[in-house]
Write a protein that binds this DNA or RNA. Structure first.
Lengths: 313, 313
DNA sequence: GATGCTTACGATACCCGTAAAGATA
DNA sequence: TATCTTTACGGGTATCGTAAGCATC
C-alpha cells in the first residue's frame, strides 16, 4: 500500500471510474493507474471496484468503507504538508476562500484589504461558487474558508461561525408606487413582478418562506445570482427587487430606491465555515478573526475539532 | 512522503530516539532509517527531531504536531488492512483481548469457550497485563478489546461498556474468629493483617477508599496481582484476604471461607473497552456481545465513534 | 470504430543494506 | 573506547510510460 494507490482510489471514485481520466488528473499513465488498483486489490485481498468485464462501474461494499478511510488518510497527508508550511514559512503561502458573489462584492473587500496589508506574501485565492459548491470545496479540501448565508451551517462536517447579520430590502425604480405604501406588506409587493436571487442563494430560502407562511403568491419573474444583476433589471423596469440591503449603494444606484423591509423577511446570518479536521495556516485564523473579531484561533480550533459527528467506521 | 517514513517517525518517538533500535524494530538498516528521516525533513522543510550534534533527543514543536497526524494515518492504514480481512475472510483472523488475571481466570472462560465454538478459525490471543498496560495496548492498537475494572473507563480515547458488577469479599482460614463477627465491620477486619490486590488492580482503589472514608487504618501486609496468590497466603495464615468474591470456589477452597462484605465495600464494575476509531472485525463485536448480551454491533459502533473528544489538530 | 482496460516490457528512479567516516558520551 | 549517526556507494526492486492486445459500447 502506498500513497499513489490511495490517491488513485480516491480519484477513481471522483472521476466516475474512468481510469483514463484518473491518469490525466494525476499526471501519470492510465496503465499505471490500472496496475496500481490491481496491486492494491491483490494486497488487500478484496475487490474495491465493481467491474463489468473490463469496465469499472462503481465501488463494492468493502470499497465504500475503504474510501472513507482513504479520504481521511489523504486529508491527513495534506494536513501534514500544510502543517510543515506553517512552520517553515509562517507568513508565506496560499489561502483559498470560496464565497458567493454577495459576500465577495459587499462584505469581504474591507476584510481582504486589511488582510493583504498584514500578510502581503500570502497568495489569496478568492473563488466564487454556489453555496453547494462552497460546501463541496470545503469538504474536498480545495478551499480553506467558505463564506455564505446558505448551506454551510447545515453540514455536520463543517464548523460554522456567524460572520454578520443582515436583512433583505426592497429595491424599486425611483418614484415607484410602493414608496408610498405604509406600511409595506407582502401583499403590496406581490402586486408587482419580483426579481430576486436564485434558489439556494443569499437567503432566497427565507424569502420564499416568508411569502409561503403569509399565504401570499409571489410572482418571481426572474432570479439572478447577484444583486448587481437584480439592480440592472429593476432599473430596466422589469419589476421590483428583493435583495440584501447592504448591496444597495445610494451614491451609485441613483435611479433606484431602497425600501426597508426588515419587518417582512427574517434576519439572515452569513456564516464562515471550515471543514472540521482541516489544518489551517496561522494566517487563515487571522483572516477569520478579521471577519469577526471575537473569533480567535483558540475558539475556532476548538469548534473545528473533528469531534462530535464523524462518520462511523 | 511514504509509509515507511511515517512508520519510522512513529517508531523513533516510541523508542526514545535511538535510530539503531528503530532499524531493528522495523527490520531494516539503521542507515536507511537515518536517510528516511532526513528525506522527509527535507521534503517538508522542517526539522522533526531535536538534535544535539548527531544525537536525536526529542521532537521539535512541529514534530509533535506531526506525530499526532502520523499516528492517525498509520492507525487508519491498519484499519484498512483489518477492513480488508473482514471482507476477504469473514470468520478467520486474529482477536487480541487483553485483561487482568481476575477476568481471565474467573469471568472470561465461559465467554471464550462459547466464542471458540462459534468462531473456531479465529486465533484468540489472550494477553495479561495491568490496567495501565491494557489501556496502552488499546491505544497503540496492539489489542482489540480490553477488559478490566480499573483505568479503562477513565480514558477519553477509549469507549467503555459495563461487563458485569461484583463485590469484594473477605476470605479467611476456616474457623477464623471473624466468622463469628456480626455484623462484620472494617474495624474488625483491621485487627488482622490484610492481603489484597496491588494498587491499581481489581478494585483496590475502592478498598483503600472504603477504609480511608471510615477513618480506619488497614494493615495491608501483602499485595498480589491475583486472587489465587491471595488465597495461597491466607491459607498459610499470613492474614485475611480481601478479593473479588467471584474468585472464591467453595468446592476447591476447602481450607478457606468466604464472608460476605458487600456492605463494606462499594460495588465494582468491570468494563469492556475498545479504542475509538479502531476498526473491529465482525467477530470482535460478537465477542463483546457474548460478554454482555445487550451490546450489539450497532450500539458498540455508535459509542466508539472517534467523535466526542479527539485531540485538537 | 471509438473508447477504455489490461498486460507486456524496457528504462528509470527509488529504496535498501554494507561499509567507512565522523560525532558523542 | 564504545555507541550512535551520517554519508557514500552498489545492487536490487518497484514504479512508470510506451505500446500492443482486447473488451465494451
Amino acid at each position: 500500500m502506498n500513497f499513489q494507490q490511495l490517491r488513485i482510489i480516491r480519484e477513481t471514485a471522483r472521476r466516475n471510474f474512468n481510469l483514463t481520466e484518473v491518469g490525466n488528473a494525476l499526471f501519470t499513465s492510465q496503465s499505471g493507474v490500472s496496475k496500481h488498483i490491481k496491486d492494491l486489490e491483490d494486497e488487500l485481498g478484496i475487490e474495491v471496484f465493481v467491474r463489468k468485464g473490463k469496465r469499472l462501474l462503481g465501488l463494492t461494499d468493502p470499497g465504500k468503507e475503504l474510501l472513507i478511510l482513504v479520504e481521511r488518510m489523504l486529508h491527513d497527508a495534506r494536513n501534514i504538508k500544510t502543517l510543515a508550511e506553517q512552520y517553515s514559512q509562517r507568513d508565506v503561502g496560499h489561502l483559498t476562500v470560496v464565497t458567493t458573489h454577495t459576500q465577495a462584492r459587499y462584505a469581504l473587500p474591507a476584510v481582504i484589504a486589511e488582510f493583504k496589508k498584514i500578510f502581503p506574501k500570502v497568495h489569496l485565492k478568492l473563488h466564487q461558487g454556489s453555496p453547494q459548491e462552497i460546501v463541496q470545496m470545503l469538504l474536498e479540501g480545495e478551499a480553506d474558508i467558505g463564506i455564505a448565508t446558505e448551506a454551510i451551517a447545515d453540514v455536520g462536517e463543517i464548523a460554522s461561525f456567524p460572520f454578520y447579520h443582515w436583512h433583505h430590502g426592497l429595491v424599486v425604480p425611483s418614484g415607484h408606487a410602493l414608496l408610498e405604501q405604509y406600511p409595506l406588506t407582502l401583499e403590496a409587493i406581490s402586486d408587482y413582478p419580483i426579481i430576486t436571487y436564485h434558489e439556494g442563494f443569499t437567503g432566497r430560502t427565507r424569502i420564499d418562506k416568508a411569502f409561503a407562511e403569509a399565504g401570499v403568491a409571489a410572482d418571481i419573474v426572474m432570479s439572478a445570482l447577484d444583486a448587481d444583476v437584480i439592480k440592472t433589471y429593476v432599473e430596466l423596469g422589469l419589476g421590483v427587487g428583493i435583495m440584501a440591503s447592504v448591496a444597495f449603494n445610494p451614491q451609485r444606484d441613483t435611479h433606484l430606491q431602497l425600501i426597508d423591509s426588515r419587518h417582512l423577511f427574517p434576519e439572515n446570518v452569513t456564516n464562515i465555515g471550515i471543514r472540521k479536521g482541516h489544518y489551517l495556516r496561522g494566517y487563515a485564523y487571522r483572516f477569520i478573526e478579521l471577519c469577526s473579531p471575537g473569533l480567535d484561533e483558540a475558539a475556532v480550533r476548538h469548534a473545528s475539532n473533528p469531534s462530535k459527528d464523524r462518520d462511523e467506521l
